[in-house]
Amino acid sequence: MKKFKSAEESHVSITELMLPSHSNFSGKVHGGHILNLMDQIAFACASKHSQHYCVTASVNKVDFLNPIEVGELVTLRASINYTGKTSMVVGVRVESENITSGEKKHCNSSYFTMVAKDGNGKNVPVPGLIIKDHQGVRRFSRSLRRKEQALKRGSKYKAETFKADDHLENLTGENVQIELKNS
């Protein structure tokens, strides 16, 4: 196994025709179907990079920017944005294309944290990332920042240390009715 790999070495792309079986009642493709495809391509990209079976540890925010219609081609592209010791962040971009007009739309992007596993389910080291351009530096740095923010979020709202009274003023003006009982 190589000690370092470039993002290009692990890049994966798939294109699939959206069928009626992928749609909801309004003819739009189910978000769950797209998420499934995104998870599959993130797995393929991470496994290609690490040369190990990989599992999804987390999925960063997914915003559905544009609907996907039945009959459109959907292209998913995945590349490694960040490598830790045993984990990788895979950036996934989804675009749709109207076959007759050729119009392309960016439908969503997300970041999947994938962890490499051995045959016994134990975490294994992954090759580091060779960064070749400013875009690669931006993606790696952005992944580091998201990782820091996730750690802060996780510790700030732990049930055993959370104090509701410290956060009540944040709820002012929100669509909520507070009826706390004294405990």
Results as ranks from 00 to 15, higher is better:
5 K>H: 02
65 L>R: 10
12 V>Q: 11
54 C>H: 00
27 G>P: 09
167 H>D: 04
45 C>G: 13
77 R>L: 13
84 G>M: 13
166 D>L: 15
127 P>W: 00
114 M>E: 06
145 R>M: 14
13 S>W: 03
1 M>R: 00
94 V>L: 13
6 S>F: 05
11 H>C: 02
84 G>T: 10
116 A>W: 00
43 F>M: 10
104 K>G: 07
13 S>N: 09
91 G>H: 05
156 K>H: 10
58 S>G: 07
101 S>Q: 02
151 L>E: 15
91 G>N: 06
122 K>H: 12
79 S>R: 14
153 R>S: 13
21 S>A: 14
82 Y>G: 06
149 Q>A: 15
32 G>L: 07
171 L>D: 02
27 G>I: 08
183 S>M: 04
65 L>F: 03
148 E>M: 14
72 E>W: 08
107 C>T: 14
150 A>W: 11
151 L>V: 13
114 M>R: 01
163 K>E: 04
61 K>T: 13
40 Q>H: 09
130 I>P: 08
162 F>I: 04
146 R>P: 10
106 H>A: 14
45 C>P: 09
167 H>G: 01
52 H>R: 01
131 I>L: 15
132 K>Q: 15
71 G>V: 11
130 I>C: 03
113 T>Q: 01
171 L>I: 04
108 N>C: 15
106 H>G: 08
42 A>F: 07
78 A>H: 09
139 R>Q: 12
122 K>L: 09
66 N>S: 11
34 I>P: 08
115 V>R: 05
153 R>I: 13
22 H>C: 04
121 G>A: 10
72 E>G: 06
95 E>H: 11
70 V>P: 03
31 G>Q: 02
114 M>D: 04
12 V>D: 02
158 K>Y: 07
66 N>V: 11
183 S>K: 10
77 R>C: 14
114 M>W: 05
135 Q>I: 15
128 G>K: 13
119 G>K: 11
5 K>P: 00
103 E>M: 08
20 P>C: 02
4 F>S: 04
158 K>D: 09
108 N>I: 05
46 A>G: 07
123 N>L: 05
97 E>I: 10
14 I>E: 09
79 S>N: 10
24 N>Q: 11
101 S>G: 04
41 I>R: 09
84 G>H: 09
155 S>L: 12
177 Q>T: 02
20 P>W: 03
58 S>M: 04
112 F>C: 04
42 A>Q: 07
146 R>Y: 12
101 S>A: 06
121 G>L: 05
179 E>V: 01
4 F>Y: 12
127 P>F: 01
24 N>D: 10
19 L>K: 05
12 V>T: 06
151 L>I: 13
154 G>D: 14
110 S>M: 12
14 I>V: 13
31 G>F: 10
51 Q>F: 00
102 G>P: 04
170 N>D: 15
85 K>M: 12
172 T>I: 11
132 K>P: 14
179 E>F: 01
69 E>F: 07
62 V>G: 04
108 N>Q: 06
164 A>F: 00
37 L>K: 14
63 D>I: 11
50 S>Q: 00
139 R>V: 05
75 T>G: 07
49 H>Y: 03
179 E>R: 00
136 G>I: 13
137 V>P: 05
178 I>R: 00
2 K>H: 07
169 E>G: 03
173 G>H: 01
121 G>R: 06
152 K>G: 03
38 M>Q: 06
